[in-house]
Simulated scan of single mutants.
Amino acid sequence: MATNKINTANFTKKVENAIKTVKSKANKANYYALNATEEVVTETISIATQWQQVTDKALKGGVKLLDNQQNLIFDTLESYKKHFVKGSKRLRKVFA
Rank of each mutant, 00 (worst) to 15 (best):
K86G: 02
I6V: 15
T8H: 10
V94Y: 13
V41Y: 10
N30G: 09
R90W: 04
S46D: 11
F11K: 06
S88A: 11
V54M: 07
N17P: 01
V94E: 15
V63A: 08
A58V: 15
K13S: 11
F74K: 10
A26G: 02
T76M: 09
M1C: 05
D67R: 12
Y32A: 02
T37F: 05
D75A: 11
A9W: 03
I19F: 03
A2F: 06
A48L: 06
N4Y: 04
K23E: 13
T3S: 13
D75V: 13
S88R: 15
I6Y: 15
N7G: 05
A18T: 09
K64G: 04
Q52N: 12
K93Q: 12
K89R: 08
L91A: 04
S24V: 05
E43F: 01
T49V: 09
G62V: 04
K82S: 01
S24Q: 12
T44E: 11
L72Y: 13
K13E: 05
K5Q: 08
V22H: 07
I6W: 12
N68W: 14
W51R: 06
L77E: 02
H83D: 09
F84V: 00
L65Q: 14
K64C: 00
W51P: 00
T55A: 11
A33R: 11
N10C: 04
R92K: 02
A26I: 08
K14T: 01
A48K: 11
T8V: 06
V40Y: 11
Q69H: 13
K25L: 09
L66C: 03
K60P: 01
L77R: 12
L34D: 03
N10Q: 14
V40N: 14
T37Y: 06
N71M: 09
G62L: 05
I47V: 15
A58W: 10
N10H: 07
A26L: 05
E38Q: 08
A36F: 03
Q50P: 06
A96Y: 12
E39D: 07
L65S: 10
K25I: 01
E16A: 14
L66W: 03
I19K: 14
D56K: 12
T44K: 07
E38W: 09
Q53S: 07
R90G: 00
E43R: 00
G61N: 09
V15I: 13
N27P: 00
K57D: 05
D75T: 13
F95E: 12
L34I: 09
